[in-house]
């Protein structure tokens, strides 16, 4: 098991390096001179040259790339934002908690509400409770999150005035983003867990458990749910990766200075250190989420655990 984790972490480093190279190259290929973008077209050639030397953009591509990789992976320094002169790492550290609050609470809601709804629908298969749950889930799967967010702002912030429409001044500001951010995930998870539950609901070992005289509630909790967990974890793991990477839209709608918004502004301003820093950070976060997900599989299923420890090839 330990060896498996080490192997996965080594792979993760490789993935991060690859992500850094790709995004750095893409940003390098973006047309336009960064110095000119920063100083405007009227700046004199000497000033521009001085700026280029300061940013290091006058050097050849490969030198710039290796310099960047060296700083990121050996000194853990993403560099300073070209526009704001603030260290990217510092800025990420400041913004991360806001994104994580929204994403984290969203995930908790997603797992708890989504799974419970899925179980509810599956155990009432074919009845009206099932159909109603699935119709509502379908609506929220299909509705784009920014639209849901706007509608929620109009209703709860403007009309009813229960919560502020945007900003981060009080904790109530987080209520709408958390709910709007989790609705889509809840709906997807509810559908996922319903079908996962229906897969196992007719399994022979469920009949065995019933034949033992086990109470129906315990059968659901102890026998069905653990066996239905695999697809649910897969869905939740994907959602976990989206916590950070998918935060841009909601943060934009609710004007929350989080990581997603940071990257968007970086992209708009061709701020290479910001964009590269954000993407590498997203890649790291996603890889860790996936690793946790795979460890959850092993924790839940002794067959997968046996596979990991015996060192056999994992698909």
């Amino acid at each position: 098991m330990g060896r498996y984790v080490i192997k996965r972490v080594l792979w993760m480093i490789l993935i991060l390096v690859a992500a850094a190279i790709v995004v750095f190259t893409l940003m390098y290929l973006v047309p336009g001179d960064p110095a000119e973008l920063l100083l405007g077209v009227e700046a004199s050639e000497e000033v521009l040259a001085a700026k280029r030397a300061e940013l290091g953009t006058d050097r050849p591509y490969l030198i710039q790339l290796f310099d960047y990789l060296y700083h990121v992976f050996l000194k853990f320094d993403f560099g300073d934002s070209w526009r704001y002169r603030v260290n990217v790492m510092t800025e990420l550290g400041q913004r991360l908690p806001r994104t994580l609050i929204i994403g984290g609470f969203g995930m908790i809601l997603n797992v708890v509400v989504g799974t419970v709804l899925g179980i509810f629908a599956a155990t009432h298969e074919g009845k009206w409770q099932d159909s109603l749950t699935m119709v509502i889930a379908m609506v929220f799967v299909s509705a784009p999150s920014f639209w849901v967010a706007w509608m929620a702002i109009i209703l709860f912030a403007q009309t009813l005035m229960w919560v502020p429409p945007s900003g981060i001044s009080t904790w109530t500001c987080y209520i709408l983003p958390v709910i709007c951010g989790s609705l889509g995930g809840i709906a997807i998870n509810a559908r996922q867990s319903r079908s996962a539950m229906l897969e196992v609901i007719r399994a022979d070992y469920i009949t065995t458990a019933r034949a033992k005289g086990q109470r129906e509630k315990v059968v659901v909790r102890r026998h069905m749910l653990p066996n239905a967990m695999m697809p649910i974890i897969t869905g939740v793991g994907g959602g976990l990766a989206m916590v950070v990477a998918g935060s841009a839209v909601l943060e934009q709608v609710f004007s929350i200075p989080g990581i997603g918004q940071y990257m968007l502004s970086g992209v708009n301003q061709r701020d290479r250190p910001v964009v590269c820093g954000c993407v590498v950070f997203f890649a790291a976060f996603t890889s860790i989420a996936m690793l946790i997900m795979d460890l959850c599989y092993a924790f839940l299923d002794p067959r997968i655990k046996a596979q990991y420890s015996s060192g056999r090839k994992v698909k």
């Binding site: 399994a203 022979d204 070992y205 009949t207 065995t208 066996n227 299923d301």
Partner: peptide, 11 residues
């Protein structure tokens, strides 16, 4: 039960 392969909870 008929099929021992599936009659036991794998977890």
């Amino acid at each position: 039960f008929q099929d021992p392969m599936t009659a036991l909870n794998p977890l």
